[in-house]
Design a protein around this nucleic acid. Structure first.
Lengths: 152, 152
DNA sequence: CGAATATCGTCAGCATAGCTGACGATCTGA
DNA sequence: TCAGATCGTCAGCTATGCTGACGATATTCG
């Protein structure tokens, strides 16, 4: 970030948009730092997470769970495949689908990266204290799940 | 947003990154909708806010307060000037500076748009209840202000 | 069976946002 | 006066994610 002089007199800190944006930004930085040793980014770790959950998924199904476009998923899986963390395999029952599965290396990376991410989040929330941190996460979940905020 | 099927089984809702990103997204949508009648966006409203606070600012000073690059500020001020909400004026004491000032229309727009934004934020936070909403905002302020999260 | 229609993965190209680097005009300090 | 810094501007780059089109495959229905 560039001109970050932060002479702000509290005018902007009262704005929800500013707060959410900067909280997200800072978490992103912390996340990148925590995940760097594993050679993946937060987005890609999320892919590993949904792939590890239950039965194998096609690219489209995985994209749906992540809320990303299927065209975006292509590059995501490309990267993970290059790193040897997942494998594409044509579905036997519907040969249009690419089933994406974790490799052994992928499962290992997932385990360790998830540990690192959890630590990172804990550190990030530490200034709140344990109880408030929990409430904060629950509040976020409520807001994101709220139909009122569901973009019509 | 495209493939938004949201079949997510709660796996991602536990991730801070996912939550912050989507909270920010949804607030952005609500904000765009609330501000549409005024012909400005959240970013530009924020510019009006810092300009209205105290003595006139140069573009660079305003950029600093917003935490954006000075090159980004150019387009922001361009738009506001086109709308007749602000005026550029060469500083008499330092002719390198563009002093940016609100016009009468700008002050009026600011007042009404800020009202709309406050209403929008109130509605956005409504699912939390009043007390929790307050705590939530305070928690966000704490996290953003925390030096631990200050990107080294 | 066979033709029309839909789905999935892929890719090229577009849009947006914000940044870097360079430039002219201007200010500052020696 | 002159070297170096500062401000606003612009062109161009990068990153991100989308749209639209395509080939391969599935499905539906006559």
């Amino acid at each position: 970030m560039a001109g970050e002089t932060h002479a702000s007199p509290g005018l902007l800190e009262a704005r929800l948009g500013y707060l959410l944006k900067h909280a997200h930004l800072r978490l992103g930085e912390a996340s990148a730092k925590a995940l760097a040793p594993f050679g993946i980014e937060g987005h890609q770790l999320a892919v590993l997470v949904v792939l590890a959950d239950g039965h194998p998924l096609s690219q489209l199904e995985a994209a749906g769970r992540l809320g990303v476009d299927r065209t975006t998923m292509v590059a995501l899986v490309d990267t993970l495949e290059d790193r040897g963390l997942v494998e594409r395999r044509r579905s036997a029952t519907d040969r249009r689908r690419n089933i994406v599965e974790l490799t052994e290396a992928g499962r290992d990376c997932l385990r360790r990266a998830e540990d690192a991410r959890r630590d990172m989040e804990r550190r990030f929330l530490a200034p709140l204290g344990e109880h408030e941190a929990e409430q904060f996460v629950r509040a976020l979940q409520t807001l994101v799940a709220a139909p009122e905020n569901d973009g019509e």
